[in-house]
Amino acid sequence: MTALSRRFGRPAVTLVLLVTVTFLIAPVALTIVGSFAREWTGVFPAGFVTFRNWAEVLGLADSIGSQRSMGWDPLVVLPVGDGLTLMAPAELLFSVGLALGGVLINLVVGVPIAYAVSRYEFRGKEWVNAVSVLPLVPGVILGVAFLRAYPVLSGTSFGLIVGYSLLKAPFMVMAVQSEFESMPLRQLEESARSLGASWPRTFLTVVVPNARSGIVSGAIICWTLAAAEFNFSYVVWAKGTQPLALFLQRHISNSTFTKAAAAVSMFFCIVVAITLLLQAFGTRGFDTRGT
């Protein structure tokens, strides 16, 4: 009996890990492969390689009805010749913008409160901490609440941005707080103050830049989660351009399997791409200022 766990313990635990990772990742890989297939009715997708699914999802090929793809909006007019208009897929751009708006609000509300909790002692600190790091309201409930409280505003971009920012704020606070807690905040603040910096200046130009890695990772997490937010968007969204998650749901429910696979794969690509972009941009942006 005792030899049993010595012999099989580690292989069994490792097996659980491998099976679970396969369960989590195999469908992701199959989806990406399937998005390039012409049909998927047998065990594996067949008819490689076609870009038709991707073209239709991105709105580069004609499609109709509930399977219709993204619209294209003019993004900027470049001053080349008669004015070259750059077009961008509407749903994509819309979601990128909404999520970025949510991240901006999260930065303004999340970084200061994380600093207050990490740096100072005050009455009710535990409560402030609990309220700021626990996701209190789930998306569906917040959606209902927005519909009741702001009937006109809730379905607009502004309503979506404010909702996303409240839903994802805890992730920002958590990320920034763990960064602050690894920093000698008191020394940092007191050194800057003794060199003549005012307190607001200390906070903005000494404390915040030093916590950049936590802030950037918090921003990345919040962006990804806001771009993927379905529950809240589904309840409050009324008309116009759809947020990405609703666009995905429409394809999953109505489109052919391979086309839905292309839509979902596109989402995988966006999550990975923006994560890399924010990482690169975030560190470079702060570094040039810091040195």
Binding site: A145, Y150, A169
Partner: peptide, 27 residues
């Protein structure tokens, strides 16, 4: 120091009241 703490917590409190507490009360 208390004023600083209040100022640091204020943005979050505003968001919480506008987007959380008031809508939930309406519900």
């Amino acid at each position: 120091e208390r004023r600083r703490i209040a100022a640091l917590c204020a943005p979050f409190a505003v968001l919480l009241v506008v987007a959380g507490v008031y809508p939930l009360l309406e519900v």
